[in-house]
Amino acid sequence: MTITIYHNPDCGTSRNTLAMIRQSGIEPEIIEYLKQPPSREKLIELMTRMGISPRDLLRQKGTPYDDLELADLRWTDDELIDFMIAHPILINRPVVVTPKGVKLCRPSEEVLSILPNPHIGRFVKEDGEIINAN
């Protein structure tokens, strides 16, 4: 069984999600999407499988979102995808792919809904928040 995480090791939510996957007993395929950005086709496939629009996948914090004026509604979905391809930091994370589905896992415990074994017991996030998933 393959689970894939589109991961940014500098992101606490992404690190927590990866740790939850590992605590479930699975070592996922890790794609550091800032180093290996998804192709346009893969990005569209992921959004389609998640049932979200490009605007829903845009990350604002710590990105060129404001400089590029991406809040402006004049941008088409295709143009927003072009921006994410040109600036992968604009892709919100982590995105996790499992046999049960594809999901943007914010907050990190969202991953539990698509893990084959979501019973990870007690999990303590980096910020100290406790998640009980029995």
Rank of each mutant, 00 (worst) to 15 (best):
M1K: 14
M1L: 13
T2L: 14
T2S: 15
T2K: 15
T2W: 03
I3G: 00
I5R: 01
I5Q: 01
Y6P: 03
Y6S: 04
H7N: 13
H7K: 08
P9W: 07
P9V: 09
C11L: 03
T13L: 03
T13Y: 08
S14D: 05
T17L: 03
T17V: 08
L18R: 06
L18N: 06
A19M: 10
R22D: 12
R22A: 06
Q23V: 05
Q23K: 15
S24D: 12
S24Q: 10
S24M: 06
P28D: 09
P28H: 12
I30A: 03
I30V: 15
Y33S: 10
L34V: 06
K35M: 11
K35F: 02
P37R: 13
P38A: 12
S39V: 10
S39Y: 10
R40H: 12
R40P: 07
R40C: 03
R40L: 04
R40W: 08
E41L: 13
L43R: 05
L43I: 12
L43W: 06
I44Y: 07
L46V: 11
L46I: 13
M47E: 06
T48W: 03
R49Q: 15
R49M: 13
G51S: 10
G51I: 11
I52Q: 01
S53T: 15
L57I: 09
L58T: 09
R59Q: 07
Q60M: 14
K61N: 13
G62K: 08
T63S: 11
T63W: 04
Y65M: 08
L68M: 13
E69C: 05
E69M: 04
L70W: 09
L70D: 08
D72C: 05
D72L: 07
D72R: 12
L73R: 13
L73P: 03
R74G: 14
T76P: 01
D77C: 05
D77R: 03
E79M: 11
I81R: 04
I81M: 05
F83Q: 15
F83W: 14
F83T: 12
M84Y: 14
I85T: 12
P88Q: 07
P88I: 07
I89Q: 13
I89A: 14
I89G: 02
I89P: 01
L90V: 10
L90R: 03
L90A: 08
I91H: 00
I91W: 00
I91G: 00
N92Q: 10
N92T: 04
V95E: 00
V97P: 04
V97T: 08
V97G: 02
P99R: 12
K100C: 01
V102Y: 07
K103R: 14
K103N: 05
K103H: 08
L104M: 15
C105K: 04
C105R: 02
P107E: 09
E109Q: 15
E109L: 05
V111F: 01
I114G: 01
N117V: 04
N117Q: 07
P118C: 11
I120E: 06
I120F: 14
V124D: 03
V124M: 14
V124Q: 15
E126I: 08
D127T: 11
G128E: 07
E129N: 05
E129Q: 11
I131R: 10
N132R: 10
A133S: 15
A133K: 06
N134V: 14
